[in-house]
């Protein structure tokens, strides 16, 4: 039995649209991954606890509301607090170019803008997943 990559797709923040998150969830499923879809308005605490209970390899964060500089680092902080270093975290959504270096310095592995082809994200996960 081949190992399935498990991805928690979460939308932190208060905006009420999850179309982007759903598109990525479908693309990852079609690439053979198991996607745990958690829906809108998730707190960083919910996202991290979900990832642990689900034994996720990857957390994919999607955001439109502009609170990424606060919410994304909070996720990686909580993971570090719990001693977790083998979950790949990346983000997507509307995020200004100038914020990306800061987010990467906080352990967000990559940021994908709105126009990113889903295949790029799929390949990124397959290459960078920490647990083989």
């Amino acid at each position: 039995m081949d190992r399935k990559i498990r991805v928690v797709v979460a939308k932190p923040g208060l905006d009420g649209h999850d179309r982007g998150a759903k598109v990525i969830a479908r693309a990852l499923r079609d690439a053979g991954m198991e996607v745990i879809y958690t829906g809108l308005r998730q707190t960083p605490e919910q996202i991290v606890d979900t990832a642990l209970q689900e034994d996720a390899d990857v957390i994919a964060l999607s955001i439109l509301s502009g609170a990424h500089n606060h919410l994304f680092p909070r996720v990686t902080e909580l993971l570090a607090e719990k001693g977790v270093d083998d979950i790949l975290v990346f983000g997507g959504g509307v995020i200004p170019e100038e914020d990306i270096p800061f987010l990467k310095s906080k352990g967000i592995a990559e940021i994908f803008g709105p126009g990113t082809p889903t295949q790029v994200t799929v390949d990124f996960i397959k290459t960078n997943v920490k647990r083989k």
Partner: peptide, 12 residues
């Protein structure tokens, strides 16, 4: 059945 992947949405 096509990709072997899944969207697991119950816990939502």
């Amino acid at each position: 059945p096509f990709s072997g992947g899944a969207i697991l949405g119950d816990r939502l």
